[in-house]
Design a protein around this nucleic acid. Sequence first.
DNA 1: GGAATAGTGTCTATTAGACAGTATAGA
DNA 2: TCTATACTGTCTAATAGACACTATTCC
Lengths: 221, 221
Amino acid sequence: MQPKHPANSEAPSRALTDYPRPSVAVDTALLTVADRALSVVLVQSGDRPALPGTFLHEGETLRDAVLRSLRVKCGISGLEPRQLRVFDAPGRDTRGWVLSVAHLDVVPARDLTLDASLAHPTAVGSARTLPLMYDHAEIIELAVDALRAEYADRPDPRPLLPEPFTLRELQTLHEAIAGERLPRDAFRRRMEPLLTDTGELSRGTRGKPARLFRRTPDPRR
Amino acid sequence: MQPKHPANSEAPSRALTDYPRPSVAVDTALLTVADRALSVVLVQSGDRPALPGTFLHEGETLRDAVLRSLRVKCGISGLEPRQLRVFDAPGRDTRGWVLSVAHLDVVPARDLTLDASLAHPTAVGSARTLPLMYDHAEIIELAVDALRAEYADRPDPRPLLPEPFTLRELQTLHEAIAGERLPRDAFRRRMEPLLTDTGELSRGTRGKPARLFRRTPDPRR
DNA sequence: GGAATAGTGTCTATTAGACAGTATAGA
DNA sequence: TCTATACTGTCTAATAGACACTATTCC
């Protein structure tokens, strides 16, 4: 919908602000991999755990609102939020007419320095058993599926691993995200052509030193 | 974001309506297959072609707003809109602070009875050369990609074909959506197990009569 | 019978998974 | 030397595409 009539069924001369407008919020499933487990950062909202979120301010993009909420509630910045979908069920928020734009974002566990009394990562398996606010359980499921799709055929698009890394470290990351073991041979064959070999080897490890790789600057990112 | 504080950084006691709120619109890429070409329905908005859209009314879901706009502008109903994403660039609408939730919907060409002076289907290839409103060109690209993904591994999820249909009719549909020829053998092998054979044959056609199929009630829809 | 379309069987190149063997470090 | 890990090569089953052959209708 654009210029001309604000809505076909109504008088075109009325100003935009004459019509009722919803409040618009953003809620973010902030995912991380901690201790080989895919986890989501939860904050406390009233009596229940919830995803971090905030209301959209005037003149602000959704992306900026997400970054602001994560900065304020989790003390992190420099991320790359991705829209999932809008939740719009009429009665979903008891305070009134509120739309929520669900987002996914990802942060390396080492960058997470949370005030543990406010926010803490929870393994997504455990999160499923918690009494989360409203549609937040569904948002987490959407976020996990979206992250799995992003990692399905790319080494580390977000990126989560510090460079350089070995193929085993990359596979361990993928297994945490996928929630299952992956075949070693097929994983090598798919990922190695997508990485840049540094020529260096890991040192101080148990067996044969592993080759160290970097992410290849990727057209698809 | 939910109950408790409207936004962490502001006084929790103020009412939702004390904060500025955006107008929320829906815009829909209504796709169809006409004359073996994937097409999008365009309406005239001021001096340019545009996608049909409207503003969201109070107490209305996004889905209902999409259905209302398509009923009013294109005279069709009974569809299944799917959210693509929210467009929120601050200056995208000259009338003020307007978010638009882009949608995809699909309609069989035979159900399209448009007032040609108001709305008409345009092949997506041609639509790319038109000076569309705002972000509507991008919405069409998103919609086409989404539709291709829906049809990539399913016979006719939307559904577009009248039953019963032959494998060739199904393949012609898929080729229109994919925008390219598909290999006959591989197409058969993938699709036939996903269809229900009616046991009937086509009649009055040129060569050997073809078997007629129906869609199999599908767990994935 | 000829043309056109539907349907079937076979060959091959590619791929994923399984598995075994070799290489190289620390203990 | 032993063990753990990294790396490489080969085999096999599944799959997609190519292609050829047969089947059945209308003209």
